[in-house]
Measured scan of single mutants.
Amino acid sequence: DLSALRVEEVQNVINAMQKILECPICLELIKEPVSTKCDHIFCKFCMLKLLNQKKGPSQCPLCKNDITKRSLQESTRFSQLVEELLKIICAFQLDTGLEYANSYNFAKKENNSPEHLKDEVSIIQSMGYRNRAKRLLQSEPENPSLQETSLSVQLSNLGTVRTLRTKQRIQPQRTSVYIELGSDSSEDTVNKATYCSVGDQELLQITPQGTRDEISLDSAKKAACEFSETDVTNTEHHQPSNNDLNTTEKRAAERHPEKYQGSSVSNLHVEPCGTNTHASSLQHENSSLLLTKDRMNVEKAEF
């Protein structure tokens, strides 16, 4: 173990290094160091905050020279020094078990990766560091076993998940096959086929009936047209017969005018059967003409 005197000496050296690497504005270890034209180094955030307070150039807090945003430059070497100082402080805390008085939040800088452990060898070769390295080497064999167990647990979990997924996939297939086998029997399929065939026959029977009705309507229309044509021909046949009657009536009127007047009046009210309204109107006109002729003949006879 380190003596108290040596611990104090190391602590004083760390404090001196820390004062050199402090920012003059925030009085902390410089984060993202930036250098000016006057070779003074500050935190990048502190300098941008200072420049944004005034429009135009501002003055350096140490030498009062003008500073602009374009004049600022990043210093990589200074950032490396800060990183190495942080590593020294971490090693000091691990070796002594004491917390550094002016320690900052170094938890963000710590890294437990194997590459980081290899890099620590180049920091300080001390008894405390050696003991700590031995402890780490002793704890390393235990870690692979834990990793193997965790991997086995994960693989077993994956296997159970896969088996569950396969079961879920197989179950719908089985149910679907069961439904297909038990849903419709052979008799049901035959009945469905016969039902479809009967429906098709009914459709075939319905369509000819409609065509037959249309044919019957067409035949009825044709018969009505033929009947009207026969009526017209009958009226045409009746007209010459009426003319013959008129000639006979004229002759009778010349011989017996008194008797014919009474008979002509009675004939006005008689309509021949089986004739249309057109034929009756023609008869009325003929009878009126005959009456006028008879009157003329009677007057001539009187004179």
Rank of each mutant, 00 (worst) to 15 (best):
D1A: 03
L2N: 08
L2S: 14
S3Y: 04
S3N: 12
S3W: 11
E8S: 09
E9W: 01
E9L: 03
E9N: 05
E9Q: 02
V10L: 01
Q11H: 14
Q11I: 03
N12T: 04
N12A: 04
V13I: 02
N15L: 14
N15I: 13
A16D: 10
A16T: 04
M17H: 00
Q18V: 08
Q18K: 05
Q18L: 05
K19A: 01
K19Y: 02
I20Y: 13
I20G: 06
I20M: 14
I20S: 06
I20D: 14
L21K: 00
E22N: 03
C23V: 00
I25A: 01
I25G: 00
C26V: 00
L27N: 03
L27T: 02
E28P: 00
E28C: 01
L29R: 02
I30Q: 09
I30T: 11
I30D: 02
K31V: 07
K31W: 02
K31R: 12
K31N: 07
K31Q: 05
P33K: 00
V34G: 01
V34Q: 01
V34S: 00
S35D: 01
S35V: 15
T36I: 01
K37A: 13
K37V: 15
K37L: 11
C38V: 00
C38I: 00
C38T: 00
D39I: 02
D39H: 08
H40R: 00
H40K: 00
F42P: 00
F42C: 00
C43F: 00
C43V: 00
C43H: 02
K44Q: 04
F45I: 13
F45C: 13
M47K: 04
L48Y: 08
L48R: 07
K49W: 01
K49F: 02
L50M: 03
L51I: 08
L51N: 01
N52R: 03
G56A: 02
G56R: 03
P57N: 13
P57F: 07
S58V: 04
Q59I: 08
Q59V: 09
C60S: 01
C60P: 03
C60L: 01
C60I: 02
L62D: 02
C63F: 00
K64E: 03
D66K: 15
D66F: 09
D66L: 12
I67N: 04
R70K: 05
R70D: 13
R70H: 05
S71R: 01
Q73P: 05
E74P: 08
E74R: 12
S75L: 15
S75C: 15
T76F: 15
R77H: 03
S79F: 00
Q80I: 06
V82K: 07
V82L: 00
V82D: 00
E84N: 05
E84K: 05
E84P: 15
E84Y: 01
L85I: 11
L85F: 15
K87H: 09
K87Y: 02
I89H: 09
C90V: 11
A91T: 01
F92V: 01
F92N: 00
Q93Y: 03
Q93K: 03
Q93V: 02
L94M: 06
L98S: 12
L98R: 10
L98T: 12
E99L: 08
N105I: 14
N111S: 05
S113F: 04
H116G: 08
E120S: 13
E120V: 06
S122R: 03
I123V: 02
I123L: 12
I123D: 03
I124M: 15
Q125H: 09
S126V: 08
S126A: 12
S126E: 10
S126P: 14
M127T: 13
Y129H: 13
Y129C: 03
R132Q: 11
A133L: 08
A133D: 09
K134S: 09
R135W: 06
R135T: 13
L137E: 13
L137F: 08
L137T: 09
L137W: 07
L137Q: 10
Q138R: 10
Q138V: 07
S139A: 13
E140S: 06
P141E: 06
E142D: 11
E142Y: 10
P144I: 15
S145K: 01
S145E: 12
L146I: 10
Q147P: 14
Q147G: 15
E148D: 11
E148W: 02
T149Y: 00
S150W: 06
S150D: 06
L151E: 15
L151A: 05
S152I: 02
Q154G: 13
N157A: 12
N157C: 04
L158F: 10
L158T: 04
G159K: 12
G159I: 03
T160C: 05
T160A: 10
V161T: 12
V161Q: 00
T163A: 10
R165T: 03
R165M: 13
T166G: 07
T166V: 00
K167L: 14
P172L: 04
R174M: 11
L181F: 11
S183P: 02
S186T: 05
D188P: 00
D188A: 04
D188T: 13
N191I: 03
N191G: 04
K192E: 10
K192T: 13
K192G: 05
A193T: 09
T194W: 11
T194N: 13
Y195C: 10
Y195I: 04
C196L: 15
G199W: 13
D200T: 07
D200H: 04
Q201F: 07
Q201K: 10
E202V: 01
E202R: 09
E202S: 14
L203A: 04
L203Y: 11
L203N: 15
L203I: 02
L204R: 15
Q205T: 07
I206R: 11
P208G: 01
Q209H: 08
G210L: 11
T211D: 07
T211Y: 11
T211E: 08
R212F: 10
R212S: 14
R212D: 06
D213H: 13
E214V: 06
E214Q: 07
I215D: 12
I215L: 05
S216N: 06
L217Q: 09
L217P: 09
L217G: 12
D218A: 10
S219D: 12
A220Y: 15
K222V: 09
K222W: 07
K222H: 12
A223V: 09
A224R: 05
C225Y: 15
C225Q: 11
S228W: 05
T230S: 01
V232Y: 14
N234K: 06
T235N: 08
H237Y: 12
P240L: 13
P240I: 04
S241C: 08
S241R: 10
N246L: 06
T247N: 05
K250D: 09
R251I: 10
R251H: 08
E254F: 08
R255P: 14
H256W: 13
H256Y: 13
H256V: 13
P257S: 07
P257I: 15
E258G: 10
K259Q: 14
K259D: 13
Y260K: 13
Q261C: 06
Q261L: 09
Q261E: 04
S263A: 07
S263C: 08
S264D: 02
S264T: 12
S264K: 11
V265D: 13
N267V: 09
N267G: 14
L268E: 07
V270N: 15
E271F: 04
E271H: 12
P272D: 15
P272I: 05
C273G: 07
C273D: 13
G274R: 03
G274M: 08
G274T: 09
G274F: 04
T275Y: 01
N276S: 09
T277D: 03
T277V: 07
T277K: 05
H278R: 10
S280R: 04
S281G: 04
L290Q: 15
D294W: 12
R295H: 11
R295V: 05
R295G: 09
M296C: 08
M296P: 01
E299V: 08
E299K: 09
E302D: 14
